[in-house]
């Protein structure tokens, strides 16, 4: 039994973690590790960085090819794709958001990790509408780049 099957929380060892050079240009982290029949992320990728052996295989992102465009973030039905980009001591995290109160650019909001714990404040940098899913980019400390995965407005 894997720990996440009990808790619902993925740890970094289950994920393909990008190298520093990849994080610096900005890449999509696909937090989708199980074999489930789903593939819209593959079709959404303009540079064909995301691939899948068959419809049930977990998606793989080629960080060399990925341009961090965030198109897949609003497409993923599991709301499981995040784009992370680091610069100096800051990290920009782009995440999907489907709640009533939508923040505005410049707002300072709470940043939560995979357990729902508030870890820091975050500044909203971008808000893009993808159908009813909001694709929101926030700025947090660089050390939290691989931890922050949700916001609370």
């Amino acid at each position: 039994m894997r720990e996440y099957e009990k808790t619902g929380i993925l740890s970094l060892k289950e994920l393909k973690v990008p190298l520093k050079k990849h994080l610096e240009k900005g890449v999509a982290i696909l937090e989708c590790v199980q074999e489930i029949p789903c593939n819209p992320c593959v079709d959404s990728c303009p540079v064909h960085a995301i691939s899948m052996k068959d419809i049930n295989a977990p998606p793989m992102n080629d960080f060399e090819k990925c341009i961090g465009c965030t198109k897949c973030v609003g497409v993923c039905p599991g709301l499981a794709i995040f784009v992370v980009k680091v610069k100096d001591d800051k990290a920009w995290i782009t995440l999907p958001y489907e709640f009533i109160t939508v923040p505005k650019v410049g707002d300072v909001i709470q940043a939560l990790d995979r357990t729902g714990t508030v870890r820091s404040k975050a500044t909203v940098k971008k808000v893009v509408k993808h159908g009813k899913t909001m694709v929101i980019t926030i700025e947090v400390e660089r050390s939290l780049a691989m931890d922050i995965r949700n916001i609370k407005v």
Partner: peptide, 10 residues
Amino acid sequence: YNVHAAKLRR
């Protein structure tokens, strides 16, 4: 699916 559980946990 873990993706559904993860959404709730976060």
